[in-house]
């Protein structure tokens, strides 16, 4: 299909869903109302095959947000140039409205670990992360969004608050931020801090997208809660509560529901997206009425 037959690339300030192979056919048949789909870049790096055929068809009808999980931006080793080129190929082919990656690392030569691993926040790691983001933005020729991580441990080496670290990266590189509200709740709970306070110091004016997902409860050997960012269930109530507060503060922002494990029937996933959409729609109406008043 030629690119001119596609819908616009711009991701609207509505709700979106992660695209799952199990749902390809149903989406194309029923064409559900949805702001956008998000795909992991690494799932579309083959030369051809059904994944590309489906994504082409879905891209014709929906804007796409491209989410990288393998660039290892938070790693201390140089970026994998071959992999960055493969990300660029997917990016250029599908022309996503948004591109995001993580404040985390996943590779340490020679291994790729397939997990979003944490880094200490120091002057040294700040420089390295900023350099990596510069390189990604240069190669892709666009702004990227950097996502705050979920973490289970703290580093004794850390000397910078995560929100300050993110703010400085934004100032240095001109990137935007992807605010994962579930990650905020998970990390805050796991480190015994307040998610609301974290959000109060988060540079929300730079947020270009929000992620919401489900977490699994556990506890550590001290009996402290240990929440796992499992993306295997509905978004938890306290996370919805934090989300509503963020949207009240900043206005409507493209919002993705992440559900990557134990993926449910399409209807269940879609209901979660509609819940986010209702909050966004309500905020947009409020925004309109504020505008009328002023």
């Amino acid at each position: 299909m030629s690119q001119s037959e596609r819908i616009s690339a711009t991701v609207p300030a509505g709700a979106g869903l992660g695209l799952k192979a199990d749902h390809y056919a149903q989406i194309l048949e029923t064409k559900p109302a949805l702001g956008f789909f998000e795909v992991h870049a690494e799932n579309y790096m083959g030369a051809g095959g059904p994944p590309h055929a489906y994504l082409e068809a879905i891209r014709a009808r929906y804007p796409i947000s491209l989410h990288g999980v393998g660039l290892s931006i938070g790693g201390m080793q140089p970026l994998n140039k071959d992999h960055l080129q493969r990300v660029k190929q997917v990016h250029d082919r599908y022309q996503p409205g948004l591109f995001s990656e993580h404040l985390a690392w996943s590779s340490h030569q020679p291994a790729y670990y397939n997990d979003l691993l944490p880094l200490p926040y120091t002057e040294e790691t700040f420089q390295r992360v900023a350099d990596h983001i510069d390189e990604v933005q240069q190669v892709l020729g666009r702004q990227m969004l950097l996502e705050n991580p979920s973490t289970y441990v703290l580093f004794e080496d850390s000397v910078i608050e995560e929100t300050d670290f993110l703010m400085r990266v934004v100032d240095k590189t001109g990137c935007g931020l992807l605010l994962d509200v579930n990650n905020v709740f998970v990390s805050a709970t796991n480190s015994g801090r307040s998610a609301s306070e974290y959000l109060a110091s988060f540079p929300v004016e730079h947020v270009g997208e929000i992620h919401l997902g489900g977490h699994a409860p556990d506890e550590d050997e001290q009996g402290h809660p240990l929440l796992i960012d499992a993306h295997d269930r509905e978004v938890a109530d306290p996370v919805w509560h934090l989300y509503r507060a963020v949207i009240d503060r900043v206005g409507a922002v493209p919002t993705l529901i992440e559900w990557d494990a134990e993926v449910p029937a399409w209807e269940v996933l879609y209901a979660e997206a509609q819940r986010a959409q209702a909050i966004l729609t309500q905020r947009q109406k409020q925004g309109a009425s504020y505008a009328q008043v002023s």
């Binding site: 397939n114 480190s191 015994g192 796992i228």
Partner: peptide, 24 residues
């Protein structure tokens, strides 16, 4: 250098990463 919220080394917390890596 990896600790939990009390500043103590936590096996359970690091196991989350190890489990994510090996399981995924």
């Amino acid at each position: 250098g990896l600790v939990g919220r009390d500043g103590e080394t936590s096996q359970r917390r690091f196991e989350v990463y190890r489990n994510n890596v090996l399981s995924s």
